[in-house]
Computed example of a mutant assay.
Amino acid sequence: MFRNRRAFTLIELLVVIAIIAILAAILFPVFAQARARARAISCISNLKQLGTASMMYAQDYDEVLPGGWTKSCDGTCGANAGCMHWRDTILPYVQKYKANAANNYEALSSNTVLSCPEYKAGNTIGPTSYGINDAEVNQGYWTTGDCTNGIFGRPMAALNQPAGLVMLADAAQTFGSAALDGGIGVFNQGSGASCNIAAGTGDCGPFTFTPEKWKAMQGWGGCDWNFAVPGRGHGDWPENPSNPGNNARRPVFRHALKCNVVFADGHAKAVGGGGLKARLGTAEDIWHNW
């Protein structure tokens, strides 16, 4: 005897499909967040390696931090004079890196320690995804007759609170328009007007821009070598209105509105944008060597 088997009705099928759709709508964002979190963890691992490499470099060179760049990076010393950025200087202490055919580390892809995993393979990221806080951990521009010029690292002893000063961070060339980057137009510091807390001059904050909204420029997305911080009268901050793309080098908050950073003692963590807006010299200010 055969038993009658009833097929699924259309309503039953629609109910199952609806349940699957609901589950997918719930789970897909969770999976996306998990992937983003994994990329953020990989990014902070990169920065931790770079921080450790910087500490190893400092131990080998009389406790002096890596400099921003040296020799002909600005083109003034001729094509064959050589160019060393901070990223080139510390690569002997880093295992995970990849050089281009010319062996100068400029052609990077998403599988290197100098590239944040948020940038997919094949995208233009610039020389690196990270920048050095050159106005604070470097000690200015030097030049001599033999064209040995550059921006050299500070001694560790010159840093007031290494554990509270950002050395390297997620950074990029960013939009120079206030409409696009979260209100840089309300940053009223005049060009070259450095903050001096003791003298009460310059714009020392707190500031009203929104760093979490800063976005990397299309077609570039990465960093050259440095990022600028407010209140220093640095050439990159505020941006030159006639050329905002080249000079708008800032920290970027690409990981759930957080910026991954490594401090001058080598430890790494994710930070929010509040410290960048804080009045210089306060407990919240982690971007200046006060």
Rank of each mutant, 00 (worst) to 15 (best):
I11W: 14
A268Y: 02
N243P: 03
G205N: 12
A34Y: 09
R5C: 03
N123F: 07
C204D: 06
W225C: 05
L257V: 00
I26M: 08
A18S: 06
P29R: 09
A228P: 03
E118Q: 11
A248H: 14
M167A: 05
C147W: 03
L108F: 02
Y119D: 05
D134F: 07
N247D: 14
G68W: 04
G183M: 04
Y97G: 14
G233E: 08
W69F: 06
R154N: 04
V252L: 00
A40Q: 11
G273S: 13
L91R: 12
W214M: 04
L159S: 05
H288N: 13
V166E: 08
N289D: 11
V30M: 08
Y130C: 09
V262E: 03
G82F: 06
L13D: 07
K277M: 15
S72C: 13
A171G: 04
G126M: 02
P230E: 13
Y130M: 07
H85Y: 13
A278C: 00
G266A: 05
G190E: 08
N4Q: 13
T9Y: 01
I90Q: 07
S191W: 09
M156G: 03
M84S: 02
A158T: 08
P162N: 14
H255T: 00
V64W: 03
S191V: 01
W69H: 01
N188S: 14
A171Y: 03
E12I: 07
L23M: 04
T9I: 10
D236H: 11
Q139K: 15
A268F: 00
K215F: 00
A157R: 14
G245I: 02
F187P: 11
I17T: 09
V261H: 14
N260M: 06
M156F: 08
K96S: 05
G126N: 03
Y93L: 04
I22A: 09
E106T: 12
K120I: 11
E12H: 10
Q218T: 15
H85E: 13
R3G: 09
F175C: 12
Y141R: 07
K120Q: 15
Q173V: 10
N123D: 13
H267N: 12
W290E: 08
P206K: 07
N100L: 11
A40E: 09
L14D: 04
V271H: 10
L168H: 02
P162C: 11
R39Y: 08
G164A: 06
A121E: 12
T76W: 03
A36M: 05
E118V: 12
Q49F: 10
T89A: 14
T201P: 08
R6P: 07
R254T: 07
N100D: 15
Y130I: 12
D146F: 01
K277C: 11
Y97T: 15
L276Q: 11
I197M: 04
N289P: 00
Q173M: 12
A172T: 12
T282N: 07
I90E: 12
T143E: 10
G245H: 06
A38M: 01
V16N: 09
I132L: 01
P251C: 04
A256L: 08
D265V: 00
M55C: 07
R154L: 03
D236G: 14
E12P: 11
S109H: 04
T143A: 09
I19N: 03
K269N: 09
P241Q: 10
G140I: 05
S194P: 01
W237Q: 05
V64L: 01
Q59G: 04
M84P: 01
T148A: 15
N149P: 00
G75A: 06
A179P: 01
A157T: 13
M55I: 14
